[in-house]
């Protein structure tokens, strides 16, 4: 049971202190592309979580058998398999959503977040820690996606998940749901996170 505290620690670390999007700048492609609405963003987060947890567990199980030069190949094989599974399941049970997300589901394969967690954590730690790490990171990723999607959807359409949030006289900022809105929202949020950090550092000193 000596591993238990580290597992919890890995779990908590992933959510905010080592947030994959705001702190490590990983998986930006998906972050920008699917956050024009809350529903696609959440679906994407769930898919990434599924792939990340499965890949981390599998890699962690076979970590003692792997030679370093083969590891990237095995990582890619594992990730690609689970992404295909996620893609098929989505196409079978949420057809409309899989059409909306389009190529961004298969692009999870090259999402740096997953390969980075496999390399940094799963290939060195035992299964429990690897799973906890994956869960924490996926929750962090999901929170980041949700925060960006919420801002873009509310400002861009005045609605959130189909409910009107802003008064109807609000002039919809269409640009927010278009590609430029993604860049600007993420840029400003990143600046904001850095600013909060900065202030904290100052008060601590």
């Amino acid at each position: 049971m000596a591993d238990q505290p580290t597992a919890t620690e890995r779990f908590v670390q992933g959510i905010l202190p080592e947030n994959p999007v705001y702190r490590q700048l990983l998986g930006l492609c998906a972050t920008l592309a699917v956050t024009n609405g809350m529903k696609p963003a959440l679906t994407m987060a769930v898919c990434v979580a599924f792939v990340l947890v499965c890949a981390n567990v599998v890699i962690s199980l076979i970590r003692n058998l792997l030679k370093p030069h083969l590891r990237i190949v095995v990582f890619t094989l594992t990730i690609a398999t689970f992404v295909t599974v996620a893609d098929r399941v989505l196409a079978a049970y949420m057809f409309q959503m899989s059409k909306t997300l389009g190529p961004y589901i298969p692009l999870i394969i090259v999402n740096c977040l997953i390969i980075c967690r496999c390399e940094v954590c799963a290939s060195k730690q035992n299964v429990v820690i690897a799973a906890a790490d994956a869960l924490g990171q996926s929750i962090g990723f999901g929170l980041a996606l949700a925060s960006i999607a919420a801002i873009r959807e509310i400002l861009g359409t005045g609605m959130l998940m189909g409910f009107r949030v802003l008064p109807s006289f609000w002039p919809d900022w269409v640009i927010m749901v278009l590609p430029p809105g993604a860049f600007i929202t993420l840029g400003l949020l990143l600046g904001l996170v850095n600013y909060i950090d900065f202030k904290r550092e100052q008060t601590r000193n």
């Binding site: 860049f183 840029g187 400003l188 904001l192």
Partner: peptide
């Protein structure tokens, strides 16, 4: 501004070019 150095300002500029 210091918090915007690096990735943040790059993304905002990217948005304007977009």
């Amino acid at each position: 501004p210091k918090p915007f150095e690096g990735a943040a300002i790059t993304l905002v500029i990217g948005g304007i070019i977009a």
